[in-house]
Design a protein around this nucleic acid. Structure first.
Lengths: 127, 127
DNA sequence: TCCTATGTACGAGTTCAATCGTACTACATG
DNA sequence: CATGTAGTACGATTGAACTCGTACATAGGA
């Protein structure tokens, strides 16, 4: 259904600005370490975050509320920071929100095939 | 060339027995979890062990002395056990020695491309 | 049989990561 | 300005993993 003025307020379509905010601190492509990436992905919650970004995100970044994770906010901050510092995701500040996306090009260049494994991953104890 | 009696003593070619010893406890192929494998490989020492097995081992298993790791024996026991319990390696007991090899077929079946990443890995602060 | 070599088992100390509560900052909206 | 919202910062707690010393078990050779 077409969004009315009322629904548009709740859907909150924030257009991507032309001048992107600077990414938060992250390793350069050539400094991304395979063992650090694997350490970041060894946590099921973080593996699920990256997989969801790969499978469901379109061309936009996503704030961490988008993931629907039932954890306290400070825990999510911790995990998103771990992913960013390992070089798996990039985070940019859009006003209030800090949005994340996977560094697909960088990871494909350094570790071809790795993201395909993440996309094929199945969460544990899936009913 | 065929081993003589003299070379057999020094080179210590232990022929693989027809009745292989039972592997030590390990997860079944279908129970190997990607996040557990990545957790095992997130340690540089263990990543190096698997890489060395992939690049330098021929068709034989290797005891952990073969790796030339400068760590106490009990530390090595810990790391080889971590690799085995994650499903990365298989260990068999040959007399005194407990030899390891990578579960290449199992890992290729579950996570195609993963072992290629390990083989291409470069150790940190390589001079 | 004694010695050596390979490797485990156990336990202690230490470090690190995960979890989460609380307080705080910043923007947006009324 | 007051309120709500998105998220960080800090600190405390907990548990797991890494590291290693020591003691122990076993096989093979002198």
């Amino acid at each position: 259904m077409a969004p009315t003025a009322a629904t548009r307020a709740t859907i909150k379509v924030l257009p991507v600005p032309d001048d992107l905010p600077e990414p938060l601190p992250e390793p350069a492509v050539e400094d991304i370490r395979l063992e650090a990436v694997m350490g970041a992905l060894s946590d099921p919650l973080r593996m699920g975050i990256v997989r969801k970004l790969l499978l469901e995100s379109e061309r936009f970044d996503h704030p961490c509320g988008w993931f629907g994770l039932d954890r306290p906010k400070s825990s999510l901050t911790h995990h998103f920071k771990a992913l960013r510092e390992a070089g798996v995701t990039r985070q940019r500040q859009y006003g209030l929100e800090r949005r994340s996306h996977v560094r697909v090009d960088d990871l494909d260049a350094r570790f071809p095939g790795l993201l395909a494994l993440v996309a094929d991953w199945t969460p544990p104890q899936a009913s």
